[in-house]
């Protein structure tokens, strides 16, 4: 992989894309802030999630479990399980970024869907690094600012159901899930997992149905034949 410095046109192109991704995610962060507050978190707690956890689907899962009346620690477990995909992103990105020590420790915090997507498709190490850092920082700044704005707005505007915000969460999860449904095995697992979760809703504490659905992934992975033979 080439280490040659980037031409300035490519440089500014990558940065422009990174800012655009940040703005789009930021708008989504507003809904996270509002939903978090309506789920019973304080403004400070909503902001702490965005600053410290900083991975959108996990944060929505956390507040989703809490909103349904589940124990916060159950929300944390669901958030961590959803965060496992970031470990996979890291495995794919490590040879592209070629960072160690303090840089790796810093890079880990901004390792998310967006920074990965803007980095894996680059041809050179400098381009991969710029795509990763520019997108990661842009999303981090705008996501956190948006969370604060959304949380403040959420406290001011009353019942979020009047604005359909509870429906927005399901739609956001579906949009995250959609690109993964191209494979037949994934569609089967998705339907089974949804079925298992719904079947458990009347009988278990909130938060348990979602965690239990994770077992479907485990079974699906162990039992299904290798890719290509399915």
């Amino acid at each position: 992989m080439s280490q040659a410095p980037l031409p300035s046109a490519e440089r500014s192109g990558i940065i422009r894309d990174a800012v655009a991704v940040g703005v789009a995610t930021g708008a989504y962060g507003i809904s996270f802030g509002a939903v978090a507050v309506s789920s019973g978190l304080s403004v400070l707690q909503a902001c702490a999630l965005s600053l410290l956890v900083f991975t959108g689907a996990s944060q929505f899962a956390f507040v989703g479990v809490v909103a349904a009346g589940g124990a916060p620690i159950g929300g944390a477990m669901t958030a961590i399980l959803l965060g496992t995909r970031n470990a996979l992103y890291g495995l794919r990105l490590a040879p592209l970024l070629q960072w160690s020590g303090a840089r790796r420790v810093g890079a880990a915090q901004i390792l998310i869907d967006e920074s990965t997507a803007m980095s894996v498709n680059r041809d050179t190490v400098p381009a991969a690094r710029l795509g990763f850092v520019a997108t990661g920082v842009s999303v981090f700044v705008l996501w956190n600012a948006a969370t604060l704005a959304g949380a403040l707005a959420g406290t001011a505007m009353g019942d979020p159901r009047n604005y359909g915000l509870d429906a927005a969460v399901g739609a956001a999860f579906l949009a995250l899930l959609w690109p993964r449904l191209g494979v037949a095995r994934s569609r089967v697992v998705a339907i089974l997992a949804a079925g298992v979760a719904l079947a458990l809703v009347p009988f278990t504490a909130a938060g348990v149905p979602v965690l239990a659905a994770g077992a479907v992934a485990l079974l699906g992975g162990v039992l299904s034949p290798p890719r290509g033979e399915a």
Binding site: A57, F60, A61, G64, A68, G69, T78, L81, L82, T84, R85, A87, L88, D166, A167, V169, G170, F173, L174, L176, L177, R180, L181, R185, S186, V189, A190, I191, L192, A193, A194, G195, V196, A197, L198, V201, P202, A206, P209, V210, A212, A213, G214, V216, A217, L218, G220, G221, V222, S224, P226, R227
Partner: peptide, 30 residues
């Protein structure tokens, strides 16, 4: 291969379950 498949499927299962619970449950009832 098993690690890779399970890791691929975990987000699929959790997101699908989150959608279902988020959209079709109200407390303990559907």
């Amino acid at each position: 291969p098993v690690v890779e498949r399970v890791a691929d499927l975990i987000p699929v299962a959790l997101l699908a379950a989150l959608i279902a619970v988020q959209v079709w449950s109200a407390g303990p009832s559907l």
